[in-house]
Write a protein that binds this DNA or RNA. Sequence first.
DNA 1: TTGAAAGCGGTACCAA
DNA 2: TTGGTACCGCTTTCAA
Lengths: 354, 354
Amino acid sequence: MKPTLQDVADAVGVSRSTVSNAYSRPDQLSAALRAKILDAAQRLGYPGPNPTARSLRRGFVGAIGVLFTSQLSYAFTDPFAVRFLAGLSGAAERHGNSLLLVPLPADRAQVRTAVENASVDGFCVYCAGDEDWALDAIHDRGLPYVTTAPRENAGPADRYVGIDERAAARSVADHVAALGHRRVALLGDTVLPDAPPGPLALAAPQDAPHSVTRGRLAGFADAFAAVGVDWPAITVLNAAGNSRAAGAAAVATTFAGDDPPTAVLACSDVLALGVLDALAEPGRRLRQPVSVTGFDDIADAAAAGLTTVRQPAEEKGRIAGELLLKPPADPAAGHVLLRTDLVVRTSTGPVRRS
Amino acid sequence: MKPTLQDVADAVGVSRSTVSNAYSRPDQLSAALRAKILDAAQRLGYPGPNPTARSLRRGFVGAIGVLFTSQLSYAFTDPFAVRFLAGLSGAAERHGNSLLLVPLPADRAQVRTAVENASVDGFCVYCAGDEDWALDAIHDRGLPYVTTAPRENAGPADRYVGIDERAAARSVADHVAALGHRRVALLGDTVLPDAPPGPLALAAPQDAPHSVTRGRLAGFADAFAAVGVDWPAITVLNAAGNSRAAGAAAVATTFAGDDPPTAVLACSDVLALGVLDALAEPGRRLRQPVSVTGFDDIADAAAAGLTTVRQPAEEKGRIAGELLLKPPADPAAGHVLLRTDLVVRTSTGPVRRS
DNA sequence: TTGAAAGCGGTACCAA
DNA sequence: TTGGTACCGCTTTCAA
């Protein structure tokens, strides 16, 4: 059996408190005694204070939990999520905290369990807003948390860092509309759960269950409504996942028809890059070039010449971390809206009169 | 104060054991009583069993620690590390484990503390081999661990997953040598600690303190020695970090001289891409095209036409996770060497006679 | 089916 | 400076 603090105390002939102090508060005992204790510990193979026991007693852990709405392993395939994590881990690093990445099981009941079993002092929920079962579980645990999207019924104590999704989406859609595009398609990841890739019937942006998608679709719609293109005239495309391949698959049949869209506005850069991939496929014949826009401004966007909306990824993560680790005195400061910038590159251009 | 299990027990008029069973072993009590207990818990706002206390009592945590040799936030900027993490998190997910990302402080003494404070059942040490203070700390805690490089004095119980760095490096260097290159430069990240960017005096590959760099440099050297180019004739370049910018900076002055290298072999794709960046700078005049090779085959390598050595990133992570979470019965199976493949693209070509 | 009691391994207050 | 003593919150035999 592994030796415990008690064993060390016995070996040296002192009390447990003294051994504990030797580790946690060196100034509380003489250097000589401390050396003697550490020496004995070494000899006995005492691994040092058990972190779990220490956390239990101290009442805090020194770790924050990170929850992803999608599979944890998918999170690492999303460039934006990775940059967010970089920012978050930087903040954690600075505060001496660890990051506990908690995989969320698909089963709703198990989500509760996963949340309940996490030894953490708080949670950062990436890209939530509708995953209420996870947020509810966190809330029930009474732990502080930060989300990257505002909750429907957010209380004043709720903290989040995000962007104005709708306004940001509108900015890029305004740009596309100004270029003269009127036949457009909007592309999102899992716009409706379990929908197949490709065109989708969505009565209104509000019907998208995911709040981020909802906000972006609404912003796109705003821009086109302003130039007389109403929602029913807009094609909504569904992608089965947030990947280039999914983006390409979603538009596979889009440009075949008689009157194809002249622009595709995607809810993420990754999807948009997939659209560009599809458009670049050899053998594809187009009546006119298709404008494509993304969202996020990930690293690959620049090289691809993708017009997109930039949001500060690392900063988002960093602020999420700070919000959690160093709560602002003023609760109003707990709601942070980051600025976004329209980045116009070569993937968008004026529509050609036919 | 937050209610505890005891409070719930008191409220219902049962013992703590029964309440505990209501949560952890529903089959141990009548459905009616269980409902009553859960109901009372709800009413009192009991957050469910405290995970820390539970872990302490049960003797395991359900989480594995991840240690990066560099800053945690840097890890997310390294594409290969990210893919490794994706694989690792997949394995963790499958086994119902969480991942605790532990930031390692620069201070050596604090590294111990960081390791000692992590509530985990084991560690995955990314890219270690020489960070012995971290490994020692893990070892002293008596926890199982996996590394991504063999340890010098590895015992039979040590588990690791890696590649034959030297052979892999040789394969790409053989390719370059076969193309006729004899004046070559090798480029590594932090070949020697605190060295400035650019040319470096390194008496032998063995003098590189980092085992991965050491192995790769040795492999490069092997190939050129085989064609009569000895170590002193080879330029070694140091990069201050594993980034494109650092790669570019490292070769900033390399091609100015009279007799510049005709090939640069980098220890990572990221560095190699930086070299390509530098070579593509406007205004740079070269006597002949410079061949460049990388290592890892990250996503951006293909688009850049980079000749490189592919190693299976996600699989490396996945296997590391499996090795930790489901230790092989046969200890020999705890040492996994993954295969690598030379991927020849357009960044390498035959040397031109001058 | 339920409860009593004994820890899991430490920490921190307070008194000596 | 050191030791005594609760106690952190839960799980788990074992007996009732």
